[in-house]
Nucleic acid binder design. Sequence first.
DNA 1: GATGAATATGAGTATATATTCATATTAACC
DNA 2: GGTTAATATGAATATATACTCATATTCATC
Lengths: 213, 213
Amino acid sequence: MAKPATTPRSGLRKLPSQARSRARVESILKAAGALLGEVGYDGVTTNLIAERAGVPVGSIYQFFETKDDIIAALVERFQARIHKLAGEELDAASVVRDRHAFVARLVEGIAGIQAEANAFVCVFSGSQSHARFDGLARELRATLIGHLDQVFSEAFPRLPKAERGRMLAAWSDITGAMIATLDRSKPGERGKLLEELKTILSAYLDAKLAATG
Amino acid sequence: MAKPATTPRSGLRKLPSQARSRARVESILKAAGALLGEVGYDGVTTNLIAERAGVPVGSIYQFFETKDDIIAALVERFQARIHKLAGEELDAASVVRDRHAFVARLVEGIAGIQAEANAFVCVFSGSQSHARFDGLARELRATLIGHLDQVFSEAFPRLPKAERGRMLAAWSDITGAMIATLDRSKPGERGKLLEELKTILSAYLDAKLAATG
DNA sequence: GATGAATATGAGTATATATTCATATTAACC
DNA sequence: GGTTAATATGAATATATACTCATATTCATC
């Protein structure tokens, strides 16, 4: 009775096996991601998500145990994207070759999945308000900062470890703040804000490197 | 009966006339500001504030109409500080003279009132989740960004207005994000994080100016 | 087209949290 | 020290929101 009919994976209460339900799960995730950007984590209610997704509340709980599991599913996708970026485009050699291009690819990569990025922001910078996100936030840190830390330590061996850590923490904070702004920006501004974020991170990186030689 | 005994001002339901109650209002504000940094706006409950302040819940409502009025009172103090900074230390001449020192004074000025700064962050970057903060957020923008905008337009006339606007918006986002991190940092890290914030804002400003000549 | 499994539905429940209010205590002033 | 206004107190109330569940519908497979 409480046993799910299909083996649960990936934070889903049960795997949607029919096309109909798979589409529903997608619409729920999409609605939740968009709403996160618009009204923030605590502004998001299950009823809001359901309404936006065009499904009744009950359907949400057909596939997700809790509201937070929706966020968690989005974060999982975010992490998958980071892994993909890491494997394909963001290695030590490419930072050394052209660090501004590296920053640009990172920014574009994250901004390319706005709904998931909104979940990242909510968990990453909101974990202090919601203890249940602690574990997820740690994972996120390991995924994003951990990878960059490795790349940078290889690319810039003269930059002390502590400095690198502070810089990457700040990078994440800055990126998170701008992602949030991005989501509320007018369509025409979006591109300019992305350029702004690239400028900020690049200038900051340059300054850190200049300070250490 | 509903009429307050003293003329209400400054968001307070009634002015505390005795020393005892004035101290209570202070302890409530202090507790609320600290908790904002620790657990965020939605993590703050009136019971938590009361407990931390060492007063019963009822006492909060003796002086504040709603929970948000506590935040509003903190924001008011934040604005007062900005006005003070603006009048005394942050004018166009001083940016032109030494813009890194200007940034440093701004950062120190804001970081010097952590409890109030936490309220600033909560209203400034949280207004999307809480419509009731819309007006307050607009005021904050006018106070902080408005002043800097004026100073910068005088100091750097070659920087286009739109660029200036984007930069100041980003400045606020960055500062907000770092303030939040600051509050959760270990005591020993605080100073270094403040330096980091100065580095970021300075490097960004330099980059913008370099791009425009 | 019949049968069981998957999915849909939304009114109803449980819980958390802001706010009140009736009552008790303390200060101020004559 | 008596009187009134200010303040204190926290159990009780109102409300919002996450989540459930009994029932209805749709899908897959024969």
